[in-house]
Simulated scan of single mutants.
Amino acid sequence: MDAEAVVSVRLVRSFEHRNFKPVVFHGVRLEQTVHEFMELVRGDIATKQGLPPPFRKYAYDTMKIIHQAHGAKTNELVMSLDDDEKLILQDDQTLRAAGVANETEVAFFREEDYRLYRENPKTAW
């Protein structure tokens, strides 16, 4: 198995307004913990050119697998509300143990925003 992967991270700023930006990370070590990867992503987006300031400074704290290479995609525009217990990544797991592989797409969001959206999954424009 490859030790490094390409992982797409969807920065979710608002579920209701479908406000998100994808950022691709190359050379991601799958043996690092989810917590370490979140720190790496936070550090990278804080200085990333072309990313609007609201995305750079947001308090992201949770990751969830949206899509894996060669798997079915969800019809949800931001991310699926299904299978949280299986797809939300646990801080102390390695990325590989959490199910992240090459070309996996994960959402990075604030858990509180997601919980509120799950309770009332309406979108606004």
Rank of each mutant, 00 (worst) to 15 (best):
residue 1 M to I: 09
residue 2 D to Q: 10
residue 3 A to L: 14
residue 4 E to R: 12
residue 5 A to D: 03
residue 6 V to R: 08
residue 6 V to N: 03
residue 8 S to V: 14
residue 8 S to P: 03
residue 8 S to W: 05
residue 9 V to C: 03
residue 10 R to M: 07
residue 10 R to C: 07
residue 11 L to E: 00
residue 13 R to L: 15
residue 13 R to T: 04
residue 14 S to F: 07
residue 15 F to C: 02
residue 16 E to L: 12
residue 17 H to E: 12
residue 17 H to M: 12
residue 19 N to I: 09
residue 19 N to F: 06
residue 19 N to V: 10
residue 21 K to V: 15
residue 21 K to P: 05
residue 21 K to S: 10
residue 23 V to P: 02
residue 23 V to M: 09
residue 23 V to Y: 05
residue 24 V to P: 01
residue 24 V to T: 13
residue 25 F to K: 01
residue 26 H to G: 04
residue 27 G to V: 15
residue 28 V to M: 01
residue 32 Q to R: 06
residue 32 Q to A: 05
residue 33 T to H: 02
residue 35 H to K: 08
residue 35 H to Q: 07
residue 35 H to G: 00
residue 36 E to P: 06
residue 38 M to L: 14
residue 39 E to C: 13
residue 40 L to D: 00
residue 40 L to M: 11
residue 43 G to L: 01
residue 43 G to M: 02
residue 44 D to V: 14
residue 45 I to G: 00
residue 45 I to C: 05
residue 46 A to H: 10
residue 47 T to L: 14
residue 47 T to M: 12
residue 48 K to E: 09
residue 49 Q to T: 14
residue 49 Q to I: 14
residue 50 G to L: 12
residue 50 G to F: 09
residue 50 G to M: 07
residue 50 G to Q: 08
residue 51 L to A: 05
residue 51 L to E: 03
residue 52 P to K: 14
residue 52 P to I: 14
residue 53 P to A: 12
residue 54 P to Y: 07
residue 55 F to L: 11
residue 55 F to M: 04
residue 56 R to E: 04
residue 57 K to W: 11
residue 58 Y to P: 01
residue 59 A to W: 04
residue 59 A to M: 06
residue 61 D to R: 05
residue 63 M to T: 05
residue 64 K to G: 04
residue 64 K to L: 08
residue 65 I to V: 12
residue 66 I to T: 07
residue 67 H to Q: 14
residue 68 Q to K: 15
residue 69 A to T: 08
residue 70 H to Y: 13
residue 72 A to L: 15
residue 72 A to V: 15
residue 73 K to W: 06
residue 74 T to N: 08
residue 76 E to R: 11
residue 80 S to Y: 07
residue 80 S to P: 07
residue 84 D to V: 11
residue 84 D to H: 11
residue 84 D to N: 15
residue 85 E to A: 14
residue 87 L to W: 09
residue 87 L to K: 14
residue 87 L to H: 09
residue 90 Q to K: 13
residue 90 Q to S: 06
residue 91 D to C: 00
residue 91 D to L: 05
residue 91 D to S: 06
residue 91 D to V: 03
residue 92 D to T: 13
residue 92 D to W: 10
residue 92 D to G: 10
residue 93 Q to M: 13
residue 94 T to L: 03
residue 95 L to T: 00
residue 96 R to N: 03
residue 97 A to T: 09
residue 97 A to K: 07
residue 98 A to N: 00
residue 99 G to K: 02
residue 99 G to H: 01
residue 99 G to P: 02
residue 99 G to N: 02
residue 100 V to C: 03
residue 101 A to M: 09
residue 103 E to Q: 11
residue 104 T to L: 10
residue 105 E to A: 10
residue 106 V to W: 00
residue 106 V to R: 00
residue 107 A to C: 04
residue 108 F to T: 00
residue 108 F to A: 01
residue 109 F to V: 04
residue 109 F to L: 02
residue 111 E to S: 12
residue 112 E to H: 12
residue 112 E to P: 05
residue 115 R to W: 06
residue 115 R to M: 04
residue 116 L to D: 09
residue 117 Y to K: 04
residue 118 R to D: 02
residue 118 R to S: 03
residue 120 N to H: 13
residue 122 K to W: 10
residue 122 K to V: 15
residue 123 T to C: 10
residue 123 T to Q: 10
